[in-house]
Design a protein around this nucleic acid. Sequence first.
DNA 1: AATTGCAAAAATTTTGAAATTTCCTTGCCT
DNA 2: AGGCAAGGAAATTTCAAAATTTTTGCAATT
Lengths: 212, 212
Amino acid sequence: MRVETPEIFADLQRKLMTAELQPGEKLKPSELQGFYGCSANTVRDVLLRLSKVGLVEFEMQRGFRVRASTPERRGDVTRFRILLEQEGARLSMLNGGVGWEARLTAAHHKLRHIESQIARSEDVVPFMGLWSDAELEFHETLISSCGSPILRETYGDIYVQFRQQMVGLERDFGSNYFHSIIAEHQAILDAALVRDIEACRTAIYDHLKRNL
Amino acid sequence: MRVETPEIFADLQRKLMTAELQPGEKLKPSELQGFYGCSANTVRDVLLRLSKVGLVEFEMQRGFRVRASTPERRGDVTRFRILLEQEGARLSMLNGGVGWEARLTAAHHKLRHIESQIARSEDVVPFMGLWSDAELEFHETLISSCGSPILRETYGDIYVQFRQQMVGLERDFGSNYFHSIIAEHQAILDAALVRDIEACRTAIYDHLKRNL
DNA sequence: AATTGCAAAAATTTTGAAATTTCCTTGCCT
DNA sequence: AGGCAAGGAAATTTCAAAATTTTTGCAATT
């Protein structure tokens, strides 16, 4: 089974984000090498790049480890995400034009569609992949007109880490849960479209505070 | 001339931050290898880690390049630094105790001492190294009680990038310049010590806005 | 004169193994 | 029994060369 480097990266990132590789677990290039059918050094390269994203911890002479998941870190990631998203949204509301509004509306429409399906269905699991993608797109679109590449990049990294920290956390995905989520996303959209900076700030906080 | 990996990292970081390696310049492992007396792969490793910090750009199959310096990026880095420092200082003012106040006062005292010397002297160049270190310590201490490892780490990275963007920019380092800097640092310290969040936010902005 | 195609050169990535460091087990001494 | 040291196993880092990819230079065509 021959795999190319970008695929190794993608596969490891997915396993990291779905907790198929569990927090704290040691990542040995010499072991993964066999699985991917490449040399240990290639795996090492990929892991170094994953440590840039923050999914993996690296310590010199001590190798790699799946980033640990603690209540402290979850809170830290969440607070940082809130900071970046509030600022990104604020700037987007100041800079964004109709194009931004259109893209945001579109992203929200798709997200809403999936969330409605989930709210009606029994089992959330089969929707999780699609929902994740739609959620990410909505939030990234929200900050997309902030005019700061650094903010957008950093947000992308922290979002990925957020997912890593939250997955594996057993939560009550009852229909209540998704009804709340739907309302929260709606509140963010509404505030953004009328450029109400304070309302949007609050809506973002209310959406994410459950993870603090 | 045999050099260990951490020293290669440190040396490259210094050259990157002092513009001895100029923005946009290509970084070829096969060339640096000769200079450091190690293999190309070792250099590659170091460069991958420097790209995590943001000093170096990496693109698959295209190698490494010193991060470009443009007015846009300078502004972006500066705005992001302002965001992080304002939030870090705000949280520190809420969480920090006397210990924090003491460390901040100490850091400011050292910084002030060097800045006074510079303001009296003709040539700033010989002081630049010491001043850089003292400035970094002051700003890092300011946010040190924020309680967010992620914020502190990210600030560290962005500070380094800030230096990289600003060095090489010809500026008027007349005595006026350092008199302003002294006043600005003092304003930040004063606001922080009396926990005046708004004043501190403004003082940080006023200190950094010249780079926008 | 500009553009496309091809071949040579240069640079990057990958490899497999050697060298080094860390980690763990075992045995010795207090 | 507890702690420390030495030895061996495992893991990480480094190396030099091979394989791959990109870039460059030159000629042929439009």
